[in-house]
């Protein structure tokens, strides 16, 4: 029973420490996710700008030529290295007439902006949306968009990335918190009373014994005084 209680206390302390580290991890993960969102938006804007320039003067269905155009203007290596954390493998280019005619579900509203409520823009798994979608319309000579550039980014690699980047920090934090918990235990630990031979009598009985001792001493003293007076006479 004693060992079970000790084990349970240790388990509870470890759970509290893990909960604290998990909170820090979630905070770090959210920071990384916001950074990735920003990167994705900038990336999509860049592609949309290039698509607007290219498809204004070229055949819109010739997307093979567009990727060569991207390579010559920006460089595929630069494009792929723009994402340091997790990058999209697929860049989608959808034209507005295909979207309007319903041939394709691009996850946009009637203004060709991202529709956050669209099912295709979500992927709920492991208690959070692990897909981020960035969508930007691209324009030709007219005000109406020619189409949209859509980029999907997976959030799952971010979890591993956050864990691997901060691994040593989490480990040290775990060790330090355990150390602090142990110090706290030492501080609050009650000092055991020293074992003495007086344990045969209770502390509360000492007072009455002292009173009895005082009365007996008084009686003895009185008797001594009487005997002294008799001797003098």
């Amino acid at each position: 029973m004693y060992y079970l209680r000790r084990f349970l206390i240790i388990l509870i302390i470890q759970i509290v420490i893990f909960a604290f580290i998990s909170t820090i991890f979630i905070f770090n993960f959210n920071l990384e996710r916001e950074s990735l969102k920003k990167q994705s938006k900038q990336f999509t804007e860049l592609i949309a700008k290039q698509a607007g320039i290219y498809f204004t003067v070229n055949d819109k269905k010739n997307t093979k030529a567009f990727i060569s155009y991207l390579d010559s203007n920006i460089g595929i290596d630069e494009l792929s290295s723009a994402f340091a954390i997790t990058k999209p493998n697929i860049i989608s280019i959808f034209f507005s007439d295909d979207i309007v005619s319903g041939k394709i579900n691009a996850g946009v509203n009637e203004n060709f902006q991202k529709d956050d409520s669209a099912e295709i823009n979500k992927d709920e798994k492991y208690f959070f949306n692990n897909k981020y979608v960035a969508i930007r319309p691209f324009y030709g000579d007219y005000e109406k968009p020619m189409g949209v550039v859509r980029v999907e980014v997976d959030n799952i690699p971010l979890i591993l990335r956050t864990l691997s980047t901060n691994a040593v920090f989490y480990l040290l934090l775990f060790l330090i918190l355990n150390n602090q918990a142990f110090l706290f235990y030492l501080w609050t630990k009650k000092k055991k009373p020293p074992i003495t031979d007086t344990s045969y009598i209770k502390e509360s009985s000492i007072g009455s014994i002292k009173i009895m001792q005082k009365i007996i001493n008084q009686i003895i003293e009185d008797h001594n005084n009487i005997s002294d007076e008799k001797n003098k006479n």
Partner: peptide
């Protein structure tokens, strides 16, 4: 991840 970029279109 690898350094491959693929364009998707209809």
């Amino acid at each position: 991840t690898n350094n491959l970029v693929v364009l998707e279109t209809l």
